[in-house]
Write a protein that binds this DNA or RNA. Structure first.
Lengths: 124, 124, 124, 124
DNA sequence: GTGGTCTAGACCACC
DNA sequence: GTGGTCTAGACCACG
């Protein structure tokens, strides 16, 4: 299982799980249309409460990354159905904040864009 | 006052305030070395409890953005004293996550880097 | 409960509590990995406000002595995860100050080192 | 002037000043019986409020490091009059705390005693 | 049930 | 007058 959680982190587990799954889709570890484990089995695998997994799935569903298929359970959405998360104003604010922290930290624009590019290039 | 808070957000107010102040320093609305409002006056302006403001100030202090000089109150640190927040692994993970959300949302690398550049270019 | 607080001291209660817990870990009264009392129960035991306990726990967390596992509550970190607090320059200055006070007080180096050794030997 | 204050520190200025003067006596920069600057002149030199200097002098006086001579103003006590500060239970507790932080930080007794010895050896 | 957050208001140490 | 500390009590997010 490629999903890594840090139970000591201040970030809620269900958010970490949501993020890990988005990363997994982005990196190809989870294919478009692929079936996800059931809530119970994933909860058992990760040793977390099944409500936590359920909340992560609900969040991903509401954001449009996954959906529930009556016959096949929970599946990753198709490539073309992926949401445009950066249209979310909160994401924009987050990006601006990171950029300003970078600038204050002494990064030139080129250095910052290099970091951004590296972050992107890790995707398939 | 340029500081905008959303009291209904799930993000704690003191974190929002910390972020707003970092943005303010990055955009030049708060100058390096400038004196910040007192805890009480800012609390009154924002209609929040003074302990909430105090918590934000203490967080910013621990991160190296501001410091409290016993004679002059709370002031923004000098340009050269600003912390490198992107050395924080969580910030890197956040950037990678944003990049993957962008990629899944259909942005090409060039488009994503344009967004990053725009976020940076707003700085002084 | 082995934790002793002096509510009349000028040292803030949450700092005293932090120090007592570090002493407790060092002396074995608190085992590595052991679960600490909940914020509320400890506050009730010590007859202090729960926010005071919470502040002490957060300080210990930030220093790496304990951490809060969302499932198991607050626990002492493992032996190998303990922080090197003497790398803190303030600790070094404190030690130098104690040494000078000792010298001025008439202690020879041997006598002073005996005191230091005794202080250390109380540890497990 | 060898007295160094950090106005950004969380340690009160008058305590820092007291500590610096004790260090100065211990290291020989201030001789036994030497006359100290007046409150006003020292306050001006250090750019601090004269009440701060006054408080430091009062504290040092109450601890027996300095005393006020009607004719010569404030002077450092004689060698033989220096107080035994380590008989103070708070100092003992402080030393125990440092020793435990050292032990938890991975220092062996020998390593810790080396630090203590180095701290002492800097004295005249 | 846990810790985290927030409020309103008080007191104190410091400068 | 400043920030720091503490209280009593409330609400909420998390698991």
């Amino acid at each position: 299982m490629f999903l890594e959680l840090d139970l000591k982190s201040s970030i809620p587990v269900y958010i970490q799980l949501r993020n890990e799954i988005v990363r997994g889709i982005g990196s190809g570890e989870l294919a478009f249309g692929e079936q996800l484990p059931t809530v119970r089995s994933l909860a058992a695998d990760l040793s977390v409460n099944s409500m936590t997994v359920s909340k992560a799935y609900q969040l991903l569903d509401s954001q449009g990354y996954i959906h529930t298929d009556r016959r096949r359970g929970t599946v990753v959405c198709a490539r073309g159905e992926m949401p445009d998360f950066l249209e979310n104003p909160d994401s924009k604010r987050e990006l601006v904040l990171l950029a300003r922290e970078a600038a204050l930290g002494g990064y030139t624009r080129e250095e910052f864009l290099k970091l951004c590019s590296d972050a992107y290039i890790e995707l398939v």
